[in-house]
């Protein structure tokens, strides 16, 4: 088993789901509470990684953060080296790739919070931000944990995007799934099997935890 790849993958998945928690909660709140009529445009963009082939997504991210794009140039001028084929580049790509897996469970949970409770909180003089932390989050704990866990698990197993954006650099961008691919290419089936089993065990364990906590089938998309 390639422990370096496993450690790297765990680090990537943890950081991705934590960043998605910070970005995803306000985004999901907006998706759930906004009455803006063009909201569906944003909803579709958030859901795009669900249907797009990872190579396509990876290609666009690669172009977007490459040395010829404004974003890539800006990053290079800031840190001194380009973003693609680094851990940070991989993190950025993973974040976009796993976005719907965090935002959709969050938004579904927020949709199920009764609006009259939220309104009651507002009329009691409690600001929107405080209402979010005092009332909405406690009522949505299951959905928030589901989103965290799903984005973690999804990042653990990503392949196409990693290959496109991160390449295959030991200790920097070689994740577990790339490692398995390499082992198979080298006809080392025993090594691939061990790592694959490890990934399977983690994925299954994570889903067990989610289902056990929710005790009902979760919807990936808001039901309303």
């Amino acid at each position: 088993m390639n422990w370096i790849a496993i450690a790297l993958t765990l680090k990537l998945a943890t950081l991705t789901s934590l960043i998605l928690l910070v970005i995803g909660l306000p985004l999901a709140y907006w998706l759930s509470f906004s009455r803006w009529r063009w909201k569906f445009l944003i909803e579709s963009v958030v859901a795009l990684p669900l249907v797009l082939p990872p190579t396509v997504l990876g290609f666009y991210i690669l172009v977007a953060i490459g040395p010829h794009s404004p974003l890539g140039r800006f990053y290079t001028s800031l840190v001194g080296h380009p973003l693609p084929f680094t851990f940070e580049g991989l993190l950025f790509a993973s974040m976009l790739y796993s976005l719907p897996f965090a935002v959709q469970p969050f938004a579904t949970a927020f949709d199920q919070v009764e609006r009259r409770l939220v309104e009651a909180s507002w009329t009691l003089g409690v600001s929107r931000v405080k209402t979010f932390f005092k009332l909405i989050i406690p009522l949505s704990v299951a959905g928030v944990v589901t989103g965290l866990v799903l984005s973690f698990a999804h990042t653990m197993g990503e392949f196409g995007v990693v290959l496109m954006v991160g390449g295959n650099i030991e200790g920097e961008t070689r994740t577990v799934s790339i490692d398995i691919y390499d082992e198979v290419q080298a006809l080392n089936y025993a090594g691939a099997a061990k790592t694959a089993l490890f990934l399977l065990a983690i994925s299954y364990g994570v889903l067990l935890a989610v289902y056990a906590m929710n005790r009902k089938v979760w919807a990936l998309w808001p039901q309303k």
Partner: peptide
């Protein structure tokens, strides 16, 4: 906004916080 109106509002089904 409702927060700044110094009102007490009671909704039809009371909307008590279950938490």
């Amino acid at each position: 906004p409702p927060q700044q109106r110094a009102i007490g509002y009671m909704a039809q089904e009371y909307a008590l916080f279950p938490t």
